[in-house]
Nucleic acid binder design. Structure first.
Lengths: 337, 337
DNA sequence: ACAGGCATTGTTATCGATAACATAAACGCC
DNA sequence: GGCGTTTATGTTATCGATAACAATGCCTGT
């Protein structure tokens, strides 16, 4: 609310009786300023209400000290975990994170990437391996390390820290088959916006066909983020269309829980009448009654590995693009028998 | 990965045969550059892989065009909704959002606010009304509009868009009493980090005492974010300590759902044996079986109102601090009978 | 035909911090 | 005590875009 313009280093310098350069050094950790001076400078800064100007510092030093990150959705425990892993891993190096979200839309992602690159991040991490051509071009030409995560892109732009969505779902299909269930359905992944969901669905179809089973029990559930409500609706549709279904794999734990509630409303025992599997190891799957069989893609580890990768690349070694593959774990719980 | 340094406006200008100033104008919307020139400039920029430098632009023009926002947690549907309201409301004005999260810790908030202010936002929005003294001072002296949200602080720093957590809980207490339930417990809010949870708990105690009822059935559930698991554990503790409890109000829908699952595991009918109320109108409460009675604080509206407030204040009118109070709505569902 | 107006482009100086270089004082070593 | 060395500070130029001002050319009306 104060109308006067904010003080600069020069103001602090004047008040302390030193040169602006000394003030600048006083605000750095390691640089050589006598303790008495530094104390005087910091106190003068406090008095004036001086706030360091990152913009000017960045322009001159050409160091922004942050990493840009895009995620599809803010409100998602998995991506939040990845972000936590990233944040923790980068903390010691002083690198901040500049976050943006795309709403699962690669056109929004393109705009976001453009916005982020205008601020000259030291590196950029994107979720997913599918992008608009222009986004690909911008990333490739940005001159900074690029990491694609949560996927194993066929044609990576730079580095990759991800896993095979298809392979993970295959593991769950095999689990159900081993339990003697063969009439298996898949819910979700039919929207062209949800690339990882589509990968999971494709993996489901391939796994079923590899076992000589019918892979046509597919229920789309709309564009992501796929809600619990949509999972419930999809389960209703599934029971209407394929009443003899024995097991259903859902594109996420959230839709799996929604599907479970639909069974509960209809009085269908889970897993007795129908088995359910989810994806993502969300908390809901561990707490629900019955608990949900799911796949844990280790989101925190994705973030941690990405942080390590970025630090090593920025640390100097101009290594060739690296691929770090994560192997998701199948967690068998009550809902699959 | 390209080692050479990125092209600047001067490079684009040279390639196009115009002055840098003209290039600068070509990148603005409204400024006067002939169509042919602009097209040539944009094409040259594309060829060179030029990316606009926000840092330099910001330094010279002293306009950052973004609003800083702090939220306690990324992975929270309520705060995500507020953010969506904010984003939508600010979109037309071209204001971006720079987001940071505090992990429900006002010391982390202080550091975050400092980091954010270094980048000279046009305004700052913080979640909650409790801050460290230094954080308060920084905000008050920042010389930009400050909005506290999700709370009605006793001593606001600037503007406020929030609601009374205590009053909202009182509404639910009265609802239970009207239904003939008097042995009511409260789960959560006992950690000093969770200020809004504490407000809700305080409101619970006041409301019970106002009705002459025993307000001692309190179960702490650890620091936020309070998980479903903790809600389940708290319900177990509650049933052990006060077996004759008729109703329980939980600090959030997530813990309420956890509490519900504990009842399900024990075969206790909800609401027959015990009624449950939550807070926040999360999706889980609408989908669960039974669905959860809850309080809807209209998070999206908080964001939308905040956006409107910011635009009007930045729009010129140097209004005195404004208070926009939201009145949360009680949603009665199956879990309370 | 000419003054005044508008559209388009150019020139110069500047935002605030700091890299690079220069310098002065303090210190150690034989 | 003299000389190289380290430590603490100052000076100057600069990062890249753009505000402010200036200049040019074209058009319009009378």
């Amino acid at each position: 609310m104060t109308p006067r313009k904010p003080p600069t280093m020069a103001d602090v310098a004047r008040l302390t009786g030193v040169s602006p350069m000394t003030v600048s050094r006083a605000f750095k950790r390691d640089s050589s300023v006598s303790d008495a001076r530094r104390a005087a400078i910091l106190q003068a800064a406090e008095e004036l209400g001086y706030v360091f100007d990152d913009t000017a510092s960045t322009l001159r030093s050409q160091k922004t000290n942050f990493v840009a990150v895009t995620i599809p959705s803010l409100n998602n425990a998995n991506f939040a975990d990845t972000l936590r892993g990233l944040t923790e891993g980068l903390k010691a190096s002083g690198l901040q994170i500049l976050l943006g979200h795309t709403n699962y839309d690669i056109t929004e992602e393109e705009h976001l990437i453009e916005q982020l690159l205008r601020r000259r991040p030291e590196a950029i991490v994107v979720t997913g391996g599918k992008h608009t051509p222009r986004a690909r071009r911008m990333l490739a030409r940005a001159g900074i390390p690029v990491v694609e995560t949560w996927d194993l892109p066929a044609d990576p732009i730079g580095h990759v820290v991800g896993f095979s969505n298809a392979a993970a779902v295959r593991g769950m299909v095999d689990h159900f088959i081993k339990a003697g269930l063969t009439r298996i359905a898949f819910i979700g992944g039919d929207a062209d916006r949800d690339t990882r969901g589509t990968d999971r669905r494709t993996g489901f179809i391939a796994a079923m066909q590899a076992q000589g089973l019918d892979a046509s029990r597919l229920i789309a559930a709309g564009p992501p983020p796929i809600s619990m409500r949509e999972g419930a609706d999809a389960m209703a549709a599934l029971l209407g269309r394929y009443p003899d279904t024995q097991a259903v794999i859902c594109v996420s734990d959230l839709s799996a829980f929604g599907a479970l509630t639909e069974c509960q409303r209809r009085g269908l025992p889970v897993p007795g009448r129908i088995a359910i599997g989810g994806f993502g190891n969300y908390e809901i799957g561990a707490v629900s009654v019955p608990s949900l069989t799911t796949i844990d893609p280790s989101p925190h580890r994705i973030g941690a590995e990405t942080a390590g990768l970025i630090l090593s690349v920025l640390g100097g070694m101009p290594s060739s693009p690296r691929l770090i593959e994560i192997h998701p774990e199948l967690l068998v719980r009550q809902s699959s028998g």
